[in-house]
Every structure is written in structure tokens, then in C-alpha cells.
């Protein structure tokens, strides 16, 4: 956690520097609050950085010992980003059916037979289809559109 604290406090200080420079071109009343917040945030980040040097060394578990599979999280994060970016291209329903299926299959620990895959895709398509009809036709909630739908 010590390293995480150092990295996050340095990142926050960087953010503060950027916001401070940007804020200098605002009107007097427009810059008052952001600059006050930047000063407060900067001082707090600096305090966190200083504290991280004086804190006793903690026993940090190796990543594999925590049981968290970080590759899975990175893969999931990338899939979420791809999901949102493909919406404009393919349309929300098609993109959702594809990425919903990929995530539901990828992160299920059960054995993946052909029948399992078919069942899973059918359930996902039915779910997406049901909610699409329910929201767009019944509740008149707008959906993002793309080349397809």
C-alpha cells in the first residue's frame, strides 16, 4: 500500500498542477473555488506522500496470494471499453449481445462444451432482446444507435 500511496499522491499532485495552470485563465469568480480546492487537494496529497515515507513497512501479499486474477480484471476492463466504443459502430443491441456473451462465457468457470455455449448465447440474446423491447417499446427509453441496431 505504501507504493500505491506514493504513486496515487504523485498522480494527484500532477492533476492539481494541471488544474492550477488551466484555472489561471478563468474570471475572478470562476477561479476562486477551483483554486481553493486545488490547494486543499494538493496539500492533502503532499501529506499522503510524506506519511507514506514514515509509515512502517507493511507485509504486502504477492498478487497470486491475494487470489485476485489481475489479468482477468484487465481483460474485463478492456472488454468494457470495447463494448462502449463499438456501440456507435454496430448499434447498442448487436454490441451488447456480442460483449454480454463474451463476458458471460469468458468468466464462467464451468466446462465450456458446444451445448453450453449455445445455451449461454441463447440466454444472453433472449435477455438483451427482452430488455430492448421492454425499455424501448414499453418504457420508450431511447437506445444508442449505430449502423445496425
Amino acid at each position: 500500500m505504501k507504493n500505491a500511496d506514493r504513486i496515487s499522491s504523485i498522480a494527484i499532485l500532477g492533476l492539481c498542477a494541471y488544474f492550477w495552470i488551466e484555472s489561471r485563465r478563468f474570471t475572478m469568480f470562476g477561479l476562486l473555488f477551483p483554486q481553493a480546492v486545488v490547494i486543499a487537494l494538493g496539500l492533502l496529497a503532499l501529506a499522503l506522500l510524506i506519511v507514506s515515507f514514515f509509515r512502517k513497512r507493511e507485509k504486502v501479499k504477492a498478487l497470486e496470494q491475494t487470489g485476485v486474477k489481475y489479468l482477468n480484471i484487465i481483460a474485463a476492463g478492456l472488454l468494457l471499453i470495447a463494448w462502449t466504443f463499438f456501440i456507435k459502430l454496430l448499434g447498442f443491441v448487436v454490441t451488447s449481445a456480442v460483449f454480454f456473451s463474451v463476458i458471460a462465457i469468458m468468466f464462467d468457470s464451468r466446462k465450456k462444451t458446444a451445448l453450453y455455449l449455445l445455451k449461454k448465447i441463447a440466454v444472453v440474446v433472449a435477455t438483451v432482446g427482452f430488455f430492448y423491447l421492454f425499455f424501448s417499446k414499453l418504457l420508450l427509453v431511447p437506445f444508442p444507435r449505430g449502423v445496425l441496431f
Binding site: I87, F99, A104, M106, V123, T127, V141, F143, P144
Partner: peptide, 24 residues
């Protein structure tokens, strides 16, 4: 299964955040 629940929440999150201003 959690593997189903997770993408389902993402699916609803996208609809929910889009539907207020119809803005991607």
C-alpha cells in the same frame, strides 16, 4: 451465476447513463 450478473449490470449501466441526455 456471477459471470451472467456482471455483464447484465454493465448492460443496464449503459442504458441508464445514455437515456438521460440521449448522449453516448
Amino acid at each position: 451465476p456471477v459471470a451472467f450478473l456482471a455483464p447484465f449490470v454493465v448492460f443496464l449501466s449503459i442504458i441508464g447513463s445514455y437515456s438521460i441526455h440521449n448522449n453516448i
